[in-house]
């Protein structure tokens, strides 16, 4: 069964239509990469799936349940979805460990000792074990983003949404975050990631979706969409990317 199904999503901000009848399906253990120019609706799509934005039309189903129904409790839905943001959004007043254990303790009502043990395990796996008691402003961007991923993973989500998680990082720090995503894929995590890293999308994604004008214009395996695109808009976009030296 599909983990995520989006049908005919529409989202407007004032006069500006950001999503215009978007369809998307994500199967179990699948990694879907969303590519497209800035303002093509990638981030808005992820925020809509996480119910951070209200839809203007369309249906979103998570594991077959219509989560766009206003009677659904959004807090209950968000527990099953992990989200990582471009600018990390760690809580600056909490230590790394407290950032990660906040949701397990407060949302899932798990005992503190158990939550901390799990958090330490996650941190050790990412090589951040000695940073458990550090505060976010003492970490590099790459370290902060890995903590943000650990924070999302501590909820044992069904689906991970990654919103341009490497865009704010210095080039030499991108690698450590990407290798974490690779590990997640190996663990079978279902993911939707908005990205500008075409090389990485080609390597890690099972499916690449090119968004333009608020729709998925072209979708398919990475070698087809990135290597031999059929739609003229996709070709145009990739040509600009190649000219900028990013593929």
């Amino acid at each position: 069964m599909d983990v995520l199904t989006c049908r005919g999503l529409r989202k407007e901000f004032g006069d500006h239509v950001v999503l215009d009848g978007l369809d998307l399906t994500v199967g179990e253990h699948q990694v879907v990469a969303l590519i497209g120019a800035s303002g093509s609706g990638k981030s808005t799509l992820l925020r809509c799936v996480n119910l951070l934005e209200d839809l203007d039309d369309g249906v979103i189903e998570l594991d077959g349940e219509d989560i766009s129904d206003p009677r659904v409790d959004p807090d209950r839905v968000r527990r099953r979805i992990g989200m990582v943001f471009q600018s990390y959004n760690l809580f600056p007043h909490l230590s790394v460990l407290e950032n990660i254990t906040l949701a397990p303790i407060r949302v899932h009502r798990r005992p503190r000792a158990e939550a901390e043990a799990q958090a330490r395990e996650l941190l050790d796996r990412m090589g951040l074990g000695e940073k458990a008691h550090a505060y976010p402003d003492r970490l590099s961007g790459g370290q902060q983003q890995r903590v943000a991923m650990a924070r999302a993973l501590a909820n044992s989500p069904r689906l991970m949404l990654l919103d341009e998680v490497t865009s704010a990082l210095d080039p030499e720090l991108v690698g450590e975050v990407l290798s974490m995503i690779r590990d997640l894929k190996a663990d079978g995590m279902t993911m939707v990631l908005a990205t500008h890293e075409m090389g990485f999308a080609r390597e890690v994604a099972d499916q690449v979706c090119f968004l333009d004008g608020g729709r998925v214009v072209e979708a398919g395996p990475p070698e087809q969409v990135l290597g031999d695109p059929t739609h003229p808009r996709t070709r145009q976009f990739l040509k600009r990317i190649i000219e900028a030296g990013r593929l």
Binding site: R47, N50, L52, P74, D75, R76, R78, R79, I81, G82, M83, F85, S87, N89, L90, F91, P92, H93, L102, A103, R106, V107, A148, R151, A152, N155
Partner: peptide, 24 residues
Amino acid sequence: SQLAAARSLGLTYRQTMRHVVLPQ
């Protein structure tokens, strides 16, 4: 963005206020 991060973890509005917004 702090509210978005807290809510996306499944914290309710009240929990977000109590643990994320008010302390800061």
